[in-house]
Design a protein around this nucleic acid. Structure first.
Lengths: 256, 256
DNA sequence: CAGTGGTCTAGACCACGCT
DNA sequence: GCGTGGTCTAGACCACTGG
C-alpha cells in the first residue's frame, strides 16, 4: 500500500485519539499500563514509528508517561494546595507558632511531610529582579535559593532576592530555615504590608525540569511575589517555580 | 557507521542543545527563521529524522513553531496582563462606567481591542462545578460561555455557571455583553462579597487547543473563580482557560 | 533472558507556501 | 515548480526492567 494519505485524519492522530478516548472514558485509569508499542502497531495496522508518534503527542499533553523496560502508564496527578493569599499574611503569622515556617505548616496541614534545601548567595540580580527591586543591575543582591520537597519529591523552586543592606547580618543570610513571630522581615524591622503577585504559565527550561524531576509534558507556573514596605519600597522578590502536576494555587479575595 | 550510541548524550539532544543555545544567547531572535531540516542534518551529520526529533522537543518546550512550506521560526510571546484581584471588585465597578464590562476595560486600558463571543445554555453541570456551586449534579444550571478575543486573536475561554433560579428572567440569560453599576449580579440582587480562586496549570485538551488556536507546546492556566454571597452561598463558578503565551495573571494582596 | 521503550538510518511520497 | 515541513514504512541495534 505504501505511505498513506497525510495531514487532517492522519494515522498517528487516529491512534492518539483512540487512546485518548480510552483514557477519557475510564477504560484506562490512572496508573494503568498501556499496550506495548508493537501490540498497538499490530492492532491499528501501522508501523511502530507511527504508534510512537501518537504516544509522543499524548506524552506532550501530559496524559501518559513512559520508561524504558517498564512500559507506558497513564499519569495520575493530584496536586497539593498552596494558598498564596494567606501565605505570609500577618493574620496567619499571628495564629501560627513562631518556630516553624509558613511553607512547612501549609504542607503539614495537608498531612504531608515538608522539607527544604536552602542555599544563600550574593549575586548580580536578573534584569526582572533588579527592576522590581528597584536596584541598579550592577549592584549585588542576596538570594536565598530553596528547593522545597514534599515526602521527598521536589515540589517547588523558590528563590527570594533581597537588597543586600537590608539583610546583612541577619538570620536571612544563613542557609537554614528561619522563622520569627510576625514573619522574618518584620522581625528584622522591615514588615511587608503589600504584595504584588504575577503568575506566568510556561514550559520549564531544561535545568528546571531536571531539578524538579519533571516528566515530559509538565508545564510550570512561575509565581513572582514582590513584597512592599509601608513607604512603598520593594523589600523582596520571590520567584516560585511550581510544577502543574503538583500544585494548585489558591487565592481568597474580598470583593471590596 | 550504523546506529549510534544512545540515551544520555544522544544525537538529537545534542542538536537540540545547540539550537537552544543559539536562541538563549540571541544568535536566533524571536521571529527568526531556523535553517531547514536538511541543512541541519548536513551540518550535524545526522539523519533528517534525528533533526526532526530535536526540533519536535524544542517545539514542545514552546521555543519554536513550524508550518508547512514556510519553515520554522523562533516564537515571540508577549502576554497581556490580567489583574484577577481587581477584576470584578466593587471598588473597580464604582470607578468604571456602567456601560462596558470589566474584561473589555482591562484590555482597552492596555491599548488593545477586546471582543467577546457569547453563548448561553442550560446544561447539566460538570461534577466540579456542581460541588462548588453546591447544587445536585442532576440539576440543570445556566452557563454563559464566552470566547474572549484581543485584536481578533483568541485570548481566553471563560465559562460562568449560575444556579438556574438565580438568573432566570435576567439579562444574564441573553447571549450578549451585559454590564451594570456595581456588577450584574449585584444589579439582580445577589452581590458577590468574596471569591475563591483556584489556579491549575496543565496542557490544553485537544478541543481547547483548537478553539484557542494554540501552538504546540503552549500550556494553559485553568483559573476557577467561585463567587460567594454575604450569607456564604455560592453564586457563580467561572472557569477561565488562559493560554500561557498570551496571559499574565496578577494579584495585588494586602498583608493583613 | 525476554520484552519493553529509546535511538537512528535510508528512502519514499504528500501538502503547503512562495516566487 | 522548487523548497519546506509532515507523514509513513522497514529494519536495525541499544538500554533498561523484571521475572
Amino acid at each position: 500500500m505504501g505511505p498513506k494519505a497525510a495531514t487532517a485524519g492522519s494515522l498517528h492522530e487516529h491512534v492518539a485519539d483512540q487512546i485518548r478516548r480510552a483514557i477519557d472514558n475510564g477504560e484506562l485509569g490512572p496508573g494503568d499500563r498501556l499496550p506495548a508499542e508493537g501490540e498497538l502497531a499490530a492492532r491499528y495496522e501501522v508501523s511502530r514509528h507511527t504508534v510512537r508518534r501518537a504516544l509522543a503527542d499524548l506524552t506532550a499533553e501530559g496524559l501518559v508517561t513512559s520508561s524504558r523496560g517498564r512500559g507506558r502508564i497513564v499519569r495520575d496527578d493530584r496536586p497539593l494546595v498552596w494558598n498564596a493569599s494567606t501565605f505570609e499574611s500577618r493574620a496567619r503569622h499571628r495564629e501560627m507558632s513562631a518556630e516553624v515556617d509558613q511553607w512547612s505548616t501549609c504542607i503539614t496541614e495537608q498531612g504531608r511531610r515538608a522539607e527544604q534545601e536552602i542555599e544563600v548567595a550574593l549575586v548580580l540580580p536578573p534584569v526582572d529582579v533588579a527592576r522590581n527591586l528597584d536596584v541598579p543591575p550592577d549592584r549585588s543582591v542576596v538570594v536565598r535559593r530553596r528547593l522545597r520537597l514534599v515526602d521527598d519529591v521536589p515540589y517547588q523552586i523558590a528563590d527570594s532576592y533581597f537588597p543586600e543592606e537590608l539583610v546583612r547580618g541577619t538570620p536571612l543570610m544563613e542557609p537554614r530555615d528561619v522563622a520569627a513571630p510576625g514573619g522574618v522581615l518584620a522581625y528584622i524591622g522591615h514588615p511587608q504590608v503589600r504584595y504584588r503577585d504575577e503568575i506566568r504559565v510556561r514550559m520549564p527550561a531544561k535545568a528546571e525540569a531536571e531539578r524538579l524531576e519533571l516528566l515530559a509534558g509538565t508545564p510550570v507556573a512561575e509565581h513572582t511575589r514582590i513584597g512592599y514596605a509601608a513607604d512603598g519600597r520593594a523589600l523582596r522578590v520571590m520567584i516560585t517555580i511550581a510544577p502543574g502536576d503538583r500544585n494548585v494555587v489558591v487565592y481568597e479575595v474580598d470583593a471590596r
